[in-house]
């Protein structure tokens, strides 16, 4: 009926997390190959991971590094070679050169275009569909109406993020490492394990930084709009959870699992205020609706 997914970076996170609310897991931290035990960089972890996820009755999608330089390509190629021989349910690709590479390597698994694939138009969706892409994560700047138009006019499956911080920037260098005196190539000592924030008091601006990626300060929250999403016949939903605690992942997943189950069964959502309070309590910088309703990303638009 619907698929609710989230992301898992490493075997450790896969073991300690409660993913019972989710139907599918995107394996790997796509913004940084140096992230400890990242599935994106360690082909030796992939067989066990695919087996574990399938044993939980969930789909396993493997993420590929989003910004590979020429120097990184041999590592990425090894990961792809290993994954092609394993029962992954698909790849997530952000980089168009890797689409080219997957085609050259004879991939037949479904490909999902990730958030940094810059999918803005149905014309581009048709281009990447020819490379084996079956699902796209539209650029966060697109409105819901635009995402639906792309789905219907390509046609192609679209992944709709419903909760979590919005990926805004992916860079080729680690901002945290660089600004703590680290040199390129040096061991980064996983400084991003601590939360880092960028704030600009005069503009009331805040962003979360994970080193190679900058995320929205506020958490995207679409709980009040679940009925609208289901009425539009959208059915692939995603919780962005990079850098969040196991409790966050479990709680958010449970709330949206319940909400979508009710909505798809035709039940009205009722008063969501207590749940919104719970979600607000997990969001340090508040909630937002992203760009879904044609506004600047950090604004929150209530149901009315």
């Amino acid at each position: 009926m619907f698929e609710l997914s989230t992301n898992v970076a490493s075997p450790q996170q896969l073991r300690r997390g409660d993913f019972s609310a989710y139907d599918a897991l995107y394996l790997g931290e796509f913004s940084c190959l140096s992230y400890p035990n990242n599935f994106c960089a360690h082909p030796e972890f992939l067989a066990d991971a695919a087996e574990q996820v399938h044993a939980l009755g969930k789909k396993a999608y493997l993420r590929l590094f989003a910004v590979p330089s020429n120097h990184d390509l041999p590592t990425v190629r090894k990961v792809i070679e290993a994954a092609l021989a394993l029962p992954f349910d698909g790849f997530e690709v952000h980089n168009l050169g890797l689409l080219q590479m997957l085609k050259e390597m004879g991939n037949t698994k479904p490909i999902h275009l990730g958030v940094f694939g810059n999918l803005y138009t149905d014309a581009t969706a048709r281009v990447v569909k020819d490379y084996g892409v079956t699902r796209v994560y539209p650029n966060p700047e697109l409105s819901l109406d635009e995402a639906i138009y792309i789905r219907d006019n390509t046609p192609i499956d679209v992944l709709i993020p419903v909760h979590g911080k919005i990926p805004l920037v992916v860079a080729e260098t680690c901002f945290i490492h660089e600004n703590s005196g680290g040199l390129p190539g040096e061991d980064c000592k996983f400084k991003c394990a601590q939360e880092h924030w960028l704030t600009r008091a005069s503009g009331d601006w805040s962003l979360k930084d994970t080193g190679c990626m900058t995320l929205s300060g506020a958490d995207l929250c679409m709980l009040e709009h679940v009925e609208k999403l289901t009425a539009a016949k959208l059915n692939a939903f995603y919780v962005q959870s990079h850098g969040e605690s196991p409790e966050y992942i479990a709680t958010v997943g449970r709330i949206y699992r319940d909400a979508f189950t009710k909505a798809f069964a035709g039940e009205t959502e009722g008063d969501v205020q207590p749940l919104l309070q719970e979600l607000s309590g997990l969001a340090k910088m508040g909630l937002c609706n992203g760009y879904y309703f044609g506004d600047a990303g950090r604004r929150y638009v209530g149901r009315t």
Partner: peptide, 18 residues
Amino acid sequence: QTGKICPGKCIMSSYLKF
């Protein structure tokens, strides 16, 4: 260049204001 080198991979500005 140093810092956030991300042509084509940045939507910070419109997240904050437009």
